[in-house]
Nucleic acid binder design. Structure first.
Length: 550
RNA sequence: GGCCCGUUGGUCAAGCGGUUAAGACACCGCCCUUUCACGGCGGUAUCGCGAGUUCGAUUCUCGCACGGGUCACCA
């Protein structure tokens, strides 16, 4: 077989040479130890936790080493592409504060190693495909889909390995004349790699997460170029990451199975492969067992979900980091206010088995994260969220900014900040009683206090209430009033001699709380009343008296 | 079915030949407390199974079981 002639037949239009391409992509000029990583999603428009999960790894690796973090769009499969998909990807990564130094942008490219959309690199792939044909390492395959399924079925029956390899590779030994005739007849074909691997031979590979693993050599004649001349993932990955200078490939462990193909391709091309970081899958509990999070069944896989629920960006990032690096939590406890990026991320501390995604834990992390924010920050975050997801809340909060900030300031700061909020969608309920539009007056008052006493508390309190009182003065007044009505001034006294009292000061304040907030629990009542203002408080007290009287 | 990876409490996990087997979440109890939230203290609960190596295995080796992944002109 004259491979030169075959290459010319297959790629008559390819005039560039591998050398031309090499010249276009000089090695990067980076400091020693700088890592180049990338995120390479297909533009399906669906962004999920897994994307974020490994993107964080890539981002940290690159930016911790003064390297480069770039975005490449893997749009080799037209079927997966969705209108606006690229834009969405970029928007989401932006939202999660993962900033690319280089790569695809919404309307183009940024960087010297592009183009960063694989479809635009067709010529590059074909140049090397042609070279492989010339070397006798690639050949056209005219097998139809039907033929391939038939083959697979037969293999299944025979209980041997599936795939296109060895003697099953029918098109492997087509003569030049046969190929030429097929092409002239207009038969579609793919370009396959002629594998010389022997699966009985193993080789050792060192993965940065998985450690040393033994892999069998690949003997599959995998598809390099699809019938439309666009490469498969395998071929594109090898070429792109070589020319783009990727030093560390971060991807899900589902790629481990095809790693032997990629390594084989790198060797064949004579290129140094990157280091690989195969991250463990995120799992979820389903029935009694763990399983990979699924796009179809699990709404919590989509990043949109967290957005809509109002999980703050740093909360999600912090949580994922706790899964990513087991020592992150300890570090966080020792450095509660430090920026997350001060943490030294390392692949050495990455778990090599899939972790269950735990919403409870996420919420706990989020509570802590939010509790460290200032009232100002909370206000800004909440309103930004509400603008998109809760117009009513947005209007309420922004109508009186000072009031909203005062609400968020209750119990904030200090050594033991309140931790009421885990997600922004909880805010509405949390602040409801501060706003007439959302306030629900109580209809039930405590059973353990007589109607007369309840009314007495309410009426008397109405008289002594002074909006200017500070917390201590306020509480002393309530206590004195309660004592006069037969309630213990201290809960302990009541507990010691329950028969001597009608109840204790807590019961008294509970009645007031119910009147003011409509609920049995609330943040510091005095602060609440200060925010509500005299008029509203008096009005609610009157309203309560009416309710109880009925 | 072949191949690859994995297996410490309900969950995330530390551990790397000798430990009372950390810590966090969740759960339970107590304390603090005008409610709630916070905080403090304590508790329940873990090394998948079987061999082997060893004076000694959660740690090393080998089987088994179980879980996961993958075997496309998808990435």
């Amino acid at each position: 077989m004259d491979y030169q002639r075959l290459a010319q037949l297959l790629f008559p239009d390819i005039t560039t040479t591998p050398e031309d391409i090499e010249k276009m992509y000089p090695p990067r000029n980076l400091p020693e130890g700088a890592k180049v990583t990338r995120v390479a999603p297909s533009p399906t428009g669906f962004m999920h936790l897994g994307n974020l999960f490994s993107a964080i790894v890539g981002e940290r690796l690159a930016h911790q080493s003064n390297g480069v973090f770039f975005l490449r769009i893997e749009d080799t499969d037209l079927k997966r592409a969705v209108e606006g998909g690229v834009e969405k990807i970029i928007r989401v990564f932006n939202h999660y504060a993962l900033n690319f130094d280089e790569g695809a942008t919404i309307d183009g490219d940024n960087g010297a190693y592009g183009p960063y959309r694989q479809r635009q690199r067709a010529n590059i792939y074909q140049t090397f495909a042609k070279q492989l044909v010339e070397r006798g390492l690639a050949y056209p395959c005219f097998c139809t889909e039907e033929e391939l399924t038939e083959m697979r079925e037969k293999q299944q029956e025979m209980k041997i390995n599936f795939g296109y390899y060895g003697e099953w590779a029918k098109c492997r030994n087509l003569t030049f004349e046969e190929i030429e005739a097929n092409i002239k007849a207009g038969k579609p074909y793919v370009l396959r790699f002629r594998s010389e691997g022997d699966p009985n031979k193993r080789f050792l590979h060192r993965d940065l997460v998985k450690g040393d693993i033994e892999l069998p050599e690949n003997d599959q004649d995998i598809v390099l170029l699809k019938s439309d001349g666009i490469p498969t993932y395998h071929f594109a990955h090898v070429i792109d990451d070589h020319f783009m200078g990727t030093t560390h490939v971060v991807r899900g462990e589902e790629w481990l199975a095809t790693l032997n193909i990629h390594l084989q391709l790198f060797r064949t091309m004579g290129w140094k492969p990157p280091k690989y970081v195969h991250t463990a899958q995120l799992m979820k509990m389903d029935g009694g067992s763990k399983r990979k999070l699924s796009k179809r069944k699990d709404p919590e896989l989509a990043l949109d979900f967290y957005n809509a629920e109002g999980y703050p960006v740093p909360s999600v990032l912090e949580y994922l980091m706790t899964l990513l690096n087991s020592n992150f939590e300890d570090w966080r406890m020792a450095n509660p206010t430090a920026p997350m990026n001060d943490f030294q991320f390392t692949t050495k501390k990455m778990s090599n088995s899939g972790s269950l995604f735990d919403v409870d834990k996420l919420k706990d992390v989020s509570k802590n994260t939010i509790s460290m924010m200032s009232a100002e920050e909370v206000y800004n975050e909440v309103t930004t969220w509400a603008k998109d997801f809760d117009q009513q809340l947005y209007n309420l909060l922004t109508a009186d900014e000072q009031k909203a900030k005062a609400i968020f300031a209750i119990g904030r700061g200090g050594a033991k900040p309140r931790k009421d909020l885990a997600i922004w969608s909880e805010v509405k309920d949390y602040v409801a009683f501060f706003y007439e539009e959302l306030f629900t007056p109580a209809t039930e008052y405590p059973q353990n206090i007589s109607k007369e006493d309840t009314l007495a508390i309410l009426n008397q309190y109405k008289g002594i209430y002074n909006p200017a009182d500070d917390g201590e003065t306020w509480f002393n007044k309530v206590r004195e009033m309660g004592e006069a009505l037969g309630f213990a001034g201290k809960p302990k006294d009541y507990k010691k001699n329950p028969d001597q009292y009608k109840g204790h000061v807590g019961d008294v304040s509970q009645v007031i709380r119910l009147a003011i907030t409509g609920r049995t629990n609330s943040p510091d009542l005095c602060s609440v009343m200060q925010i509500l203002g005299e008029e509203t408080c008096q009005q609610r007290l009157s309203q309560a008296i009416e309710t109880v009287s009925r």
